[in-house]
């Protein structure tokens, strides 16, 4: 009987499948990001500046609501310059977020954008955004962080209002840790 050989083969195959599925677990991470980006799941917007252009759709207007949230124990005062704008799809608009470091320590922040409804995220094109970079701010300082965006003319008609939210996180410890390690 070559049973022993067969058993060893089943064992090897099982282990390979196990290892592959472990890898698959990790592969879900980039896979998920791609799906999110394509389908706009979870309101994630692109992390790089938008390059393209779009036709202008004069026939309708869309309300854009700006929102800000402080994540964790972030001590800055952080808010949009205007709370909302009425925009024409395809046209480029500019606004800004204001931040003020209320402590005496120098801190680094990262703003994380999120759009609602989620599927509108792919149509919210940011030409310039402070969220593309980390934002250092010395203790007691304030800053105006510009945002240039355009709502795509492809935005489904059913969407009459888009919310753009930024959550500001304190990442000073992470950044300091990295530079110290270097």
């Amino acid at each position: 009987m070559s049973n022993e050989a067969n058993i060893q083969r089943t064992l090897r195959r099982g282990l390979v499948v196990g290892v592959l599925m472990f890898g698959f677990g990790f592969a879900l991470v980039p896979l998920y990001d791609i799906i999110c980006e394509v389908a706009g799941i979870n309101g994630k917007t692109s992390t790089t500046a938008y390059q393209g252009a779009s036709v202008v759709d004069e026939s309708r207007e869309v309300r854009v609501i700006f929102m800000s949230v402080n994540g964790g124990s972030m001590p800055w005062r952080f808010r949009p310059e205007t709370t909302e704008m009425t925009v024409t799809p395809g046209k480029v608009y500019e606004t800004a977020y204001l931040a003020e470091n209320m402590t005496s320590r120098d801190l680094v922040a990262q703003a994380v954008p999120s759009v609602s409804p989620g599927y509108a995220a792919v149509h919210m094109n940011k030409i310039e955004c402070f969220c593309f970079e980390q934002q250092p701010l010395a203790g007691g300082e304030d800053t105006r962080m510009p945002l240039r965006f355009m709502v795509d003319a492809d935005l489904p008609d059913s969407v009459r209002a888009i919310t753009l939210n930024y959550t500001l996180f304190d990442i000073t410890d992470k950044v300091v840790g990295e530079t110290a390690a270097r």
Binding site: V17, G18, L20, M21, F22, F24
Partner: peptide, 14 residues
């Protein structure tokens, strides 16, 4: 089990 326990292992590793 062989298909999904490794995924659990993946998520706790993350």
């Amino acid at each position: 089990l062989v298909a999904v326990i490794p995924v659990l292992a993946g998520v706790i590793t993350m």
